[in-house]
Amino acid sequence: MTEEQRVEEFKRAVQAGRKVEAGDWMPDEYRQRLIRFIEMHANSEIMGALPERDWILRAPTLQRKLAVTAKIQDEVGHAQLLYRLVEDLGKPREQIFADLISGKSKFHNVFHYPTRSWGDVGVIAWLVDAAAVISQSALLKSSYAPYARTMRRICWEEAFHLKHGEDIVLTAMMGTAKQRAMMQEALERWWEPLMMFYGPPTPPEQDKDLAWGIKSRANEDLRQDFLTKYVPRIREIGLRIPDPKLRFDESAGRWVYSDIDWDKLVAVARGNGPASQQRLGFRRLSYEETAWVREAITGGAELVA
């Protein structure tokens, strides 16, 4: 069998539902796509700790303080699980961090925005995590079995984050006018990043990650799911969604919404979002300033970013 035939056979097998383990033979393109996909997921988890981190000190009750800290800890924990997968696929952690800090690899667009109030803590934990759960649940069917298994644990934990975030929002919506206004204002800022969350509606046949079975559902499908599930829940509690065109088109069986500026998404993901450079700068500093610790316990092997 030629290399090319072997690759084709592998591709047919994963499309037919074959599950791949870390030690199995895999085509180089599959390995590289897995690395890129999981690495971006991992980077997003660790960069996602930064916007919420500022609120660890500011949570208004002990229970909220503990829940916010535990939630961010979970996100870092997810990064740890995912970095291990990437390392097992052949990319060392020092290199992963070097690429993150230099901007060579990416992290999710939703983490390129600043947080401005306690409302953001609720909206992020509830709706950003809800959006994430929808795409992560689709990854339970990934052809790469270690990733799919890791996702079981991650989805389980995300369910608690959603509850924590929803409870913050609901409690404020039952509170004073100022509290309600805080939640409304946060939702208005986060709506656009949420609509961009799954990326542009790339035709499924052009999406190579779908072809390799790394992910299992198309971007627009995921967005429609999110809207179906969460638009009623958001409206029901008295929040207004800042999109006058948003409605469910009964005849087409899908949600219609205002045009999304996909060029803006590309710019944000490339590091030109409102908080991109500040976040990367902070990550770089905190990584560089702790290099001596890693050196002390591993006896060197530190890669210069």
Partner: peptide, 24 residues
């Protein structure tokens, strides 16, 4: 106790939602 990590701390969330929906 670490209920803040788990679902049981948020049983009240369902009631809050019901109450807000009714008020709405």
């Amino acid at each position: 106790e670490r209920s803040y990590r788990m679902g049981e701390a948020y049983r009240v969330t369902v009631q809050k939602r019901r109450q807000l929906a009714q008020e709405g």
